[in-house]
Design a protein around this nucleic acid. Structure first.
Lengths: 129, 129
DNA sequence: CAGCATCCATCATGATACTG
DNA sequence: CAGTATCATGATGGATGCTG
């Protein structure tokens, strides 16, 4: 019956759909957006401040993508001027532990990575120029 | 020395270094490369076959980046013609569980995401055209 | 406030050709 | 086999100005 069982847990056949999903949800900005929204809902400009280096266009694009994928909800309050709140959805919430784990992983691993980079870069500036 | 829980409510100070690391290791191709190499070492063209839709240039770039970050090791055997094997490093291995969890997450979540996309796209094709 | 529209620079990717 | 080099192109990102 079975095709090889390559993985520790289970190894489903990953179609391009799955990769696309990760691609849309795990990109640089989306990860930080979701992380921020896991704490509490935020308005557009609050998000901009929460993620200092992002500019308006990519932020908007990422939010739309996350909204389309059902990860965040966009709530418009018709005051004057309008207030727009972004809130994480239950689906998005299922990513929280993973995101925390990833961020934690970076803090643990970064030192080793920086060492590796130095070694790599050193042997790049090689002799025989 | 305990750092408190890696929960998002406890936001660890994530510098841009941390984001950059995730960015270099979690991108579309790298994720699949690491996943493939977690099973067993692979040669360059084996990797190309393992990740069908990737072309040579981005694959090479991703491998170099992963190598620089200490995630994979490039082993050259000076036969004729040369054989080059890519192998996951101990550091890279620390990502395996996370990657498995992410891939598993996609399989669990994809159906809900697809529903969300339909809803979103439906209300995009709105009236008043 | 929360965007969208526009222009422009940069980058990643694809295709192709060439090397040891 | 395992790349590098080059060119063309399409997608992204920054900056700016405008809207309700």
């Amino acid at each position: 019956m079975k095709e090889t069982a390559p993985h520790s847990s289970d190894s489903p056949q990953l179609t391009e759909q799955h990769r696309e999903l990760l691609d849309q949800v795990l990109d640089k900005w989306s990860l930080q957006i979701l992380d921020a929204l896991c704490e509490r809902p935020l308005r557009f400009n609050e998000l901009r401040r929460a993620i200092p280096i992002v500019t308006q266009k990519p932020l908007t694009a990422a939010l739309r993508r996350l909204e389309r994928n059902g990860m965040v909800e966009r709530i418009v309050t018709s005051t004057r001027p309008v207030a727009v709140e972004y809130r994480i959805t239950p689906i998005g919430k299922t990513l929280q532990d993973l995101i925390d784990a990833l961020l934690h992983w970076t803090t643990v691993t970064l030192p080793a990575v920086e060492q590796a980079r130095e070694r790599f870069d050193d042997q790049e500036e090689l002799p025989s120029l």
